[in-house]
């Protein structure tokens, strides 16, 4: 587990994670054989780039992390089988991949918030966890709309 001794260290960690997510979706966009899926992954990548920009803004002091209520947790991601990225992924695969990724990010920040002793940093991780939960909810909503229409 990394040592987080400052707010900047936490933000750098989060920024790196958003960059990784951007790279993942950007890579999937270029690999997929489905042009519509390429557009979808590109939109996911843009969202992650937006998150990264927001965090950079927070680090520079030009933006503030919004204080969120805990987003609804539909737990759809909890009970779906993992998807491995592949060039012939379907739209359903893409959403499962994305929501699981956001779920992993949420879990990571939640654990860090619980284990870190510095209250300010713990609060920051807690807010980041809520951000990721909100992202997961977005994908779960799309999934429910498109693939759970009769359930």
């Amino acid at each position: 587990m990394e040592n987080f001794e400052s707010v900047d260290a936490v933000l750098d960690f989060a920024i790196l994670r958003e960059q990784e997510a951007f790279d993942l979706y950007h890579g999937l966009a270029s690999q997929t054989s489905d042009p519509k899926l390429a557009v979808l992954f590109t939109s996911f990548a843009k969202v992650e780039a937006g998150h990264k920009l927001k965090l950079e803004g927070i680090k520079e002091g030009t933006t503030y992390l919004p204080v969120r209520q805990n987003p609804v947790n539909l737990k759809i991601a909890d009970y779906l089988v993992e998807v491995e990225p592949s060039p012939d992924m379907s739209f359903q695969d893409a959403l499962v991949l994305a929501m699981k990724r956001e779920q992993a990010a949420n879990s990571l920040y939640t654990n860090l918030a619980a284990t870190i002793s510095e209250p300010l940093l713990a609060e920051l991780f807690s807010q980041l966890a809520k951000e990721e939960a909100a992202h997961k909810l977005r994908f779960e909503n799309l999934y429910e709309e498109n693939f759970l229409s009769e359930n």
């Binding site: 519509k36 557009v39 739209f91 359903q92 498109n146 693939f147 759970l148 229409s149 009769e150 359930n151």
Partner: peptide
């Protein structure tokens, strides 16, 4: 499992599709 159905238009790749395929 009867939880919904979707379109398979893969047999006509020349066509433009919507975001929902």
């Amino acid at each position: 499992a009867a939880i919904g159905q979707n379109v398979d238009a893969s047999m006509a790749p020349e066509l433009e599709l919507t975001d929902w395929r």
